[in-house]
Design a binder for these strands. Structure first.
Lengths: 107, 107
DNA sequence: CAAATGCGTAAGTTATGACTTACCGTTAGT
DNA sequence: ACTAACGGTAAGTCATAACTTACGCATTTG
């Protein structure tokens, strides 16, 4: 069910921007927040949410906290999306529609 | 930017459930709403959002509105996710980190 | 050791959006 | 034509979550 978490976490535009800024490499909070339309604490809060969702990881370097993307955090969401392209799906789908028409007729 | 829309639309659990119920095949609103913890109008509203996002399509059959999944609506989101696994990514990432260390040193 | 930098957290405000009930138009059956 | 079933829309309520400012705790630096 982690794909659900990933979805809701990445749904917020500001948080997604934070995430995108990490795409090119690990960065301290300062650097992420620089030039963003929201305050630094806001960025910190987004990073916490991202971290709790397993989408980023954090390491300390002196007084700085360096954040980076955790690709594995996206895996479940990716799998879920992929599951909409399955071969078995179409057969199942047709079957389901058939049973619906049958039900409708018999009613 | 449609992947952003798809993300926010699919982030809601109830709406995602509606969407999932269509996975197995096209269904009228009645059938979708049956057994759901929310009212039928709520389901109608979710369907409208899903439709506006291009994630489902609607066809009329008498007095019923039959909804079905639009796979293409997921394509952009899928592409966005895939872009996190690119080969070029790692090179870029390393470069970005390198430039960061340089900046830090020179300061 | 004092001042400064980096960042997380607490508390309070506010906008948004997911729900409800009530209602209305449209198609189907008798 | 009358009634019932299907489902979209309006209006209002309420919870949530994305922000803000204020603050405090580490680390580094002079």
């Amino acid at each position: 069910m982690a794909y659900a978490t990933a979805l809701s976490v990445l749904a917020d535009p500001t948080r997604r921007e934070v995430f995108e800024r990490l795409r090119a490499g690990a960065r301290p909070v300062n650097a992420i927040a620089a030039g963003m339309p929201v305050s630094r604490p806001a960025v910190s809060q987004h990073l916490k949410v991202l971290k709790d969702a397993g989408l980023v990881e954090e390491r300390s370097e002196g007084v700085r906290r360096i954040y980076s993307v955790r690709r594995e955090g996206l895996a479940e969401l990716r799998d879920w999306l992929d599951s909409f392209w399955g071969d078995a799906l179409d057969a199942l789908k047709l079957e389901a529609e058939r049973s619906y028409r049958a039900k409708k007729r018999s009613k």
